[in-house]
């Protein structure tokens, strides 16, 4: 860093530092997904849940999200279904 850099960019972050921070976050996230893979039955569970819900409500495939989260020694099965506007209900 030169003498004049102190005036030019003293509070501008170096892009290499930004890159490192972004990588640390995304790599940690992807590693945890890799090390705690979701169980095999999840896609089928999602499909069957969707079929049941569809008996009553019109729901698009992408509006149902099923995933399992591990927190310490217990697991949480999270099912998230976004219901459509009222006119689409059966």
């Amino acid at each position: 860093m030169s003498f004049f850099d102190y005036f030019r960019s003293s509070h501008q972050r170096k892009t290499a530092d930004v890159a490192k921070e972004r990588l640390q976050i995304i790599v940690a996230h992807e590693r945890s997904k890799r090390n705690n893979p979701q169980p095999d039955y999840l896609p089928l569970l999602q499909k069957e849940l969707l079929e049941v819900v569809r008996k009553y409500v019109v729901v698009e495939d992408e509006h149902i999200k099923v995933h399992i989260e591990k927190d310490g020694d217990y697991e949480v099965l999270e099912v998230n279904i976004a219901l459509p506007e009222t006119e689409n209900r059966r």
Partner: peptide, 17 residues
């Protein structure tokens, strides 16, 4: 470019991987 802060350093890459 590493010195000027525009490229990840070898230490940074090694630390991440």
């Amino acid at each position: 470019r590493v010195n000027s802060g525009e490229m990840l350093s070898a230490e940074d890459v090694q630390e991440i991987l």
